[in-house]
Write a protein that binds this DNA or RNA. Sequence first.
DNA 1: GTTTAAGCGAGACGGTACGTCAGGTCTTGTT
DNA 2: AACAAGACCTGACGTACCGTCTCGCTTAAAC
Lengths: 207, 207, 207, 207
Amino acid sequence: MTTRQEIDFQEDVAAEPSRGGRPRDEAREQAILEAAIDLLAEVGYEAMSIEGVAVRAKSSKATIYRRWPGKAELVADAIRRRSEPILEDLPDTGSLRGDLLALARFMFDNMEGVDGGLMCGLAVAVRADAEFGRLMAAHTHEHKLRSIAPIVSRAQARGELPPGADASLILQVAPAVALFHQMNGEPLDVQFAEHLVDHILIPLLRP
Amino acid sequence: MTTRQEIDFQEDVAAEPSRGGRPRDEAREQAILEAAIDLLAEVGYEAMSIEGVAVRAKSSKATIYRRWPGKAELVADAIRRRSEPILEDLPDTGSLRGDLLALARFMFDNMEGVDGGLMCGLAVAVRADAEFGRLMAAHTHEHKLRSIAPIVSRAQARGELPPGADASLILQVAPAVALFHQMNGEPLDVQFAEHLVDHILIPLLRP
Amino acid sequence: MTTRQEIDFQEDVAAEPSRGGRPRDEAREQAILEAAIDLLAEVGYEAMSIEGVAVRAKSSKATIYRRWPGKAELVADAIRRRSEPILEDLPDTGSLRGDLLALARFMFDNMEGVDGGLMCGLAVAVRADAEFGRLMAAHTHEHKLRSIAPIVSRAQARGELPPGADASLILQVAPAVALFHQMNGEPLDVQFAEHLVDHILIPLLRP
Amino acid sequence: MTTRQEIDFQEDVAAEPSRGGRPRDEAREQAILEAAIDLLAEVGYEAMSIEGVAVRAKSSKATIYRRWPGKAELVADAIRRRSEPILEDLPDTGSLRGDLLALARFMFDNMEGVDGGLMCGLAVAVRADAEFGRLMAAHTHEHKLRSIAPIVSRAQARGELPPGADASLILQVAPAVALFHQMNGEPLDVQFAEHLVDHILIPLLRP
DNA sequence: GTTTAAGCGAGACGGTACGTCAGGTCTTGTT
DNA sequence: AACAAGACCTGACGTACCGTCTCGCTTAAAC
């Protein structure tokens, strides 16, 4: 039911008592996770089936169930394994507003693609197991913060923001408001990006 | 797939060509919607089944499918019908901070109960049909705004906020940040309420 | 587990309390039973699968499981429904030996075809539920006896057999010995037919 | 599919080209066969699984498949290895009828136990590979004949049977009729033993 | 008052996917 | 090599729902 065992396995790589038997084929795991991500993006969480993942990964259902207890855990693992390469290289546009708009655009692109779907799809699973949500978030929070901090530092260097401005506020508010906007059926377009930056993010950073 | 026909039906109550035949039993509709809400709260959107709703409502599947095209529409309708009596009578605590904390507490209670589950459960459905999300939001936005506006007016009367403060910002940000917080596995406790009010809402209202 | 309910249903055709719901489509039942018989004859009891029956009958597994609890019961029903038209019109060859050889030939043909397979396949099922075997046997015993009795009567008329000869002995011994012969891997050929008639059946009928 | 290789291996014990490597552990073979017999008796041929045999024998599936091509062959071998100590020491009761009744009782006991189940379970396998059945039968026929012959000789010495009586007829008819009786759901009780002896076996032995 | 068209419960129907189990093969490391 | 362990693909198992479709009843408006 929970994904604890999986996560533990992630954490302590050593200490496998296994002893004997054919070792698991790491390539199968990879193929399955890739198939899962692909299907997820193509048909969505609900319509995606373990059966379909097995077919696409040229695997068997048994091999999947041997590793993950169910769909939610498989998907969670797939996302974890894939979520590294985001928020890279946000350019210095010369102004805080420009930087934040670029960030918003980047974030919106991800949200309208797979990421938003994943978050929504997993939301209900997280509610059932808070620990799971915590781990997923912790995994990416620091990474995202590293990408965002420069925006604030540059603005402070330019004198656009006072020294005490808290970059992590952006991470708490920007994705939240964007996701909520999307959940209300509104489009993540340029108007909304400007609204987000001008009326929410910038006021927030200026105490 | 879409919920258009359902919504249209809601809008124009007249113009039924019906012409003979037994009229629909409104009591059945009520029973079905209640069963749907109950199951939704108990097992979640995904695990809930039309079959289960039929059994609990002592109805037949056909009766359900005669009125709603599918699960998403049934659930949407169920929520719409139920979401009226919220955000009532937030008391005047004497200060903006106190009012906002009371609002946060009220909101958190709802979110940890059925409401949060519904929003999460429906998030994925909304992504598939933006119009659906828009209608759900429109339905409640005005109502919520009416409940929140007094908080801002009172603060303005007290001189805590300047005249131009935008009450609707609270509706855009507060539930969003709270929901996102919850989706990260964090608890909606008093600490978070104070953080939300002191570092996000109040700074946001003061331009 | 047992086939009792099925059999009971056969027995008392009336007294259906059913009340409501779409009635079962008798044609589906027929199609399924036919598919079952066909597959049984083609691949044998063990290799036959419910899944295969469903495909061949253009039915769904659910429809099969709705009527029969499992493979054994389905097969049993299939055989019961099918076993009527055997042992017809054995000709008067002019001598007891000739008549018995014709009977043996006819019986061997059936045994090398579907019948033998069915009996072997069901043997183990019968051991688990004697009542089931009894019903299957009773169903055909009388019918077979009617076909065999003339052989004995004619022989008595010819003076080949004394008046007291017991025709049912043939039914107890002939199929048994033939089946057992087959279970020992021996062919049901002309030599064996002659052996059966000359050294077993005829001595047995003459006290 | 066939059991040919297995049987050949049985026959020519010598001529192993082996060529290095660890020799097969004869004890494993024994443990597997015992486990097979046990499971066979406990749950029946169909419900028995190679997997289960491996577990009970603390063996691995590979070790089993290295020696036998499949379930049928394993079971056949298990039975062959176990079927030696039967039909021993049938006492001289002083009359042909008494001897035959003792024989029937002994045979019925075996048939109601494991033996009957095995024969039924294997019947279908034999039909698929006659050679297999032939070998199983040949293996035991002579042995059984040796046990039965004295009954006929003693009867001849007593003058109950003429010199030409054929003991092997008993082997062809008695187990066949008993098995068939059982397959019709009838019990192998004393009444049937007397019927078998008085109306079938004795008439058959007297030409 | 009849029609009569629809609502309604029950549940059969063809499907799809579930999660489990066993089949037979293959791959480890150990003996 | 043989062996215990166990991963692997395949495919059937029996169950649960899906959304559609008859059934044999109401039930109320239209005739």
